[in-house]
Design a protein around this nucleic acid. Structure first.
Lengths: 207, 207
DNA sequence: GCGTATCGGTACACTGGCGTATCGAAGGAC
DNA sequence: GTCCTTCGATACGCCAGTGTACCGATACGC
């Protein structure tokens, strides 16, 4: 708690910490990079200290412990992974979402991958993971579907609607395991075009 | 290597090990259980020894190290998770697969979950994971699709066909993260019915 | 039955990470 | 310019897990 306040307030209250917000971002970036590379368990405070060229004491002074540091890193680097998408049609939105997710897949997929198991042991971590990586994507996709309903493109009770987000995020996580490569833009675009849209009844199956 | 030979050959060569095949299965079951519960990193040789009421020395004598034990446990408990499914139609096969996967989801999903990250660091583990848990499911589903093509239910170039397995396995892994509960039989069945089949053009979208 | 090798159990070094304590140095407040 | 706090760095104690060594007991081969 206290560290974020300190690190995120540019100036205002007589700031005690010498960690500038930019410096904090360096810490956070290092943490997330190391998470992506080696996972949560292999992430060590010593490693973070070495990579950021600071003392362990600084890390413990500011964040208290490894789980808190990781949670702070997640929250501190919130970046809209699905930026405002509103193309005017559900199909367009989903295509654009596939593009956007695919473009960022090298960044977010490994993160989710690295944290998804560790999160089961720690409620705080699970909460941060959902809040930062899962919920925004989920909300964005659900919003697209909702707008699609409002525009009358699909019916409110379209039975495939509830699966759209699970399909997108699921396939994104499944492909590395199945085929050994990340779900990139091209793959996700094909997926939306050939699987999701037809399931919603939004494009005539090509046969 | 040597331990499996010993444990899996009932008799034949003057067996040195006193570990009967049944006893070996107990070890393997304990390992997989603990993997499901706590993940790969948290699995300790001491824990396995304690749960199976054996000495650590036995584990090290037989399997050499923790990664080897895990690999052996995977290979040693090969069980067809998708038993021969052949209902005569692709839709029937997929519905049956959903049922079967859903019924076993409490068993296999956590395993994949626990190993999928650890596998990225160890080629042997990745290989075993694919061979035992991924490939059989993949092959089974692809076989269904292939039979569907041969029967003429879908065209060979059906663009949604390539995504069937990724969707099933992906959704199975995504739901715990999205909704906090396992993809059970009911959910997967609805998913197949309302998303996969329509995407294949196998059921008229309900609207 | 007897020898032998493995079993289960414990004790032991060794490693590596966590978190704390302590230190000189540096930079901002005033 | 002085004071004071935090910084970076290092050393330390502690704990947990790995893998080895050793033990008496036990069950199998013959």
């Amino acid at each position: 708690m206290s560290p974020q306040e300190v690190a995120q307030e540019p100036a205002h209250t007589p700031r005690r910490s010498k960690i500038t917000p930019e410096r904090a971002q360096e810490f956070y970036a290092a943490v997330l990079d190391m998470l992506r590379e080696s996972g949560y368990e292999a992430l060590t405070m010593e490693g973070v200290a070495a990579r950021t060229r600071c003392g362990k004491s600084t890390l413990y002074r500011q964040w208290g412990s490894k789980p808190e540091l990781v949670v702070a890193a997640l929250h501190g680097t919130r970046q809209a992974l699905l930026p405002h998408i509103d193309t005017g049609s559900l199909a367009g939105d989903l295509r654009e979402a596939a593009r956007s997710i695919g473009a960022g897949s090298g960044r977010d997929t490994p993160l989710v991958h690295a944290l998804s198991h560790a999160a089961l042991q720690s409620p705080e971590l699970l909460c941060a993971l959902r809040e930062v990586l899962i919920a925004p994507g989920l909300a964005a996709i659900d919003a697209m579907v909702r707008r699609g309903v409002e525009r009358g493109e699909i019916r409110p009770d379209n039975p495939a609607a509830e699966f759209v987000s699970a399909q997108l995020l699921g396939v994104m996580r499944a492909r590395p395991l199945l085929e050994g490569k990340n779900a990139d833009e091209a793959y996700l675009t094909r997926f939306v075009e050939n699987a999701i849209l037809p399931s919603l009844g939004l494009s005539a199956p090509a046969h």
